[in-house]
């Protein structure tokens, strides 16, 4: 390939890339859409509450045009994820099923087996914070406080929107740090 040809080719691809990014931008540019605030939904059934979705990326840095920042983003009240009672995520449900299997193994003292089940559950749905809680429990049983602490922190992050679980996570934290 001659240098001239190469330059032409590169220019051509560059143009395509620019056009493509232009198109993509028009299609998915989050800044191009107005902010829609998700209204806080009514509390869902416990089974459904477990499959809440995280705030999507749009919610994380969505364009804001109209309101003043202070009013738009009251930090403390609204950083907790807003539960979406939309259709339950099948993966989350399947993951919860495994969590339950793992929990039973853990109760029977079959820690290693339980951990393998929780790992599969995490792979299925990293959203499911209960797995992190139980993994922390399992590491506690195994006496590895460092791992227990790490998983507890993840559990904290994922279960903060669920008061019951958040309570369990924080008492677990006390247990880990107190030991």
């Amino acid at each position: 390939m001659t240098d001239k040809k190469r330059v032409w080719l590169l220019t051509f691809f560059l143009l395509i890339a620019i056009a493509a990014s232009g198109c993509a931008r028009v299609m998915i540019d989050p800044y191009a859409r107005p902010l829609e605030k998700t209204p806080p939904k009514a509390k869902t059934e416990p089974a459904e509450a477990t499959v809440k979705k995280t705030p999507s990326i749009e919610e994380s840095h969505k364009p804001v045009v109209e309101k003043a920042p202070e009013k738009m983003f009251p930090i403390e009240e609204e950083t907790l994820p807003v539960p979406k009672p939309a259709k339950p995520d099948p993966r989350a449900l399947a993951s919860l099923e495994l969590t339950e299997q793992g929990r039973m193994l853990l109760e029977q003292g079959r820690v290693d087996e339980a951990m393998t089940v929780f790992e599969s559950a995490v792979n299925l749905s990293p959203e499911n914070g209960r797995n992190y809680y139980y993994l922390a429990e399992a590491w506690l049983v195994k006496g590895d406080l460092r791992q227990a602490r790490e998983w507890n922190r993840l559990a904290e992050l994922y279960l903060q929107g669920d008061p019951d679980w958040a309570k369990r996570v924080s008492s677990q934290k006390v247990k880990i740090n107190g030991d």
Partner: peptide, 19 residues
Amino acid sequence: ASENWFRQPPDVISRVICA
């Protein structure tokens, strides 16, 4: 493939800025 995204930790805040 899923619509899942990461959870915003409490110490991350959003602000409207001038681009």
